[in-house]
């Protein structure tokens, strides 16, 4: 699992060159940022497992955050209404994506890009008319500011969502079918599984996750600006890929994706601590994503195996051991 290796490398590098990253204050900054990225990445992971991709994340994310502000009207009585509205609207956005892609078989890249534009536009207008520079209900931001076991509550929401996905995939029929459909949609269709339904469901659940992340971010920073969604276009995709999923669909691990999101958040934090110029931060971030794609999957392990095998080739004088191997029935 290259993700965990990457995290170890990151921790070592940070400990040597930017110890402030690992100081309590640094970790406190990473926990919420990593969680927002992790939750959006989990949504993106579901979509990628079906062989699709979702570029409407920033729009849905922003809309989710703004709806909590706008519908919440700074009143603690309206917290739940606001959250449910955000989730419901996001589900609708996901449904549009899902029907266009899973039902009508349009190209996921273009559809989600277009839908993301529309949603982003609507969110912008909504911001200017309703939510401009207004905070979320105080009850929500107070809740988000609180700790559980010494870590922000936001972090635990991410953990719970990850665990829910783990349980769904490992122990439920729904999760199993979803994985099967991702692994081979053609065969799944022959076998009578509802491939389209699973694809649509992926986009709906994913959109709900984006909105939840957006709402959490709004709760964290109280008054979300109009650009909060921007980092969540590439970030989640990078996390999914570094987490070991293949962009052509199939299997993926929620835990690895979650860990990869924290790796990226940690990297970001470290670069800030080191005081790298923003421009340079982008460069490093991009390079790490490409590097992550290079080492994702078991490519490294395979490469090492091949090197070992090539090494052993000229010196294969030990015919005895080979004979034993060949004698197996």
């Amino acid at each position: 699992m290259p993700v965990y290796l990457a995290i170890i490398v990151l921790v070592v590098v940070a400990a040597v060159w930017a110890p402030a990253t690992l100081a309590p204050a640094g970790l406190e900054a990473i926990a919420p940022l990593g969680t927002f990225l992790a939750i959006t990445a989990l949504g993106q992971m579901l979509v990628i497992m079906t062989g699709g991709i979702d570029l409407s994340v920033p729009g849905t994310f922003l809309l989710g955050g703004l709806l909590v502000v706008g519908v919440g009207q700074q009143s603690d009585d309206r917290i739940w209404v606001a959250l449910l509205t955000a989730i419901g609207v996001a589900a609708l956005v996901g449904l549009v994506n899902g029907i266009l892609i899973g039902g009508l078989k349009l190209n996921a890249l273009i559809v989600t890009l277009a839908v993301g534009q529309v949603v982003g536009g609507v969110a912008n207008r909504y911001y200017n008319q309703v939510a401009i520079q207004k905070p979320v209900p105080p009850g929500l931001s107070d809740w988000a500011a609180g700790d559980f076991l010494g870590v922000t509550r936001i972090f635990w929401v991410g953990v719970v969502l990850t665990l829910v996905l783990v349980v769904v995939f490992r122990f439920t029929g729904v999760g199993r079918r979803f994985q099967v459909v991702g692994a081979n949609p053609v065969a799944s269709h022959v076998l009578g599984l509802r491939v389209n339904l699973n694809q649509v469901a992926a986009y709906v659940v994913a959109a709900v996750l984006y909105a939840m992340a957006g709402a959490l971010l709004a709760a964290d920073i109280r008054a979300p600006g109009v650009t909060v969604g921007a980092p969540y276009l590439l970030g989640p995709i990078a996390a999914v890929v570094i987490g070991g999923a293949s962009l052509t669909g199939g299997l993926a691990s929620p835990v690895s994706t979650w860990a990869a999101a924290f790796f990226l958040a940690g990297l970001n934090q470290m670069m800030r601590v080191m005081g790298l110029p923003t421009a340079l931060q982008f460069v490093v971030f991009g390079l790490v994503i490409v590097g992550g794609m290079l080492v994702s999957g078991d490519r490294i392990i395979k490469a090492v195996e091949r090197i070992l095998r090539d090494r052993s080739r000229p010196g294969r004088r030990k015919e005895g051991s080979l004979a034993v191997e060949g004698g197996e029935p």
Binding site: V180, A183, N184, A187, S188, V190, L251
Partner: peptide
Amino acid sequence: REALMPVLGVRV
């Protein structure tokens, strides 16, 4: 292509 999920196990 049409019958198996190649990457998944025998059980699944």
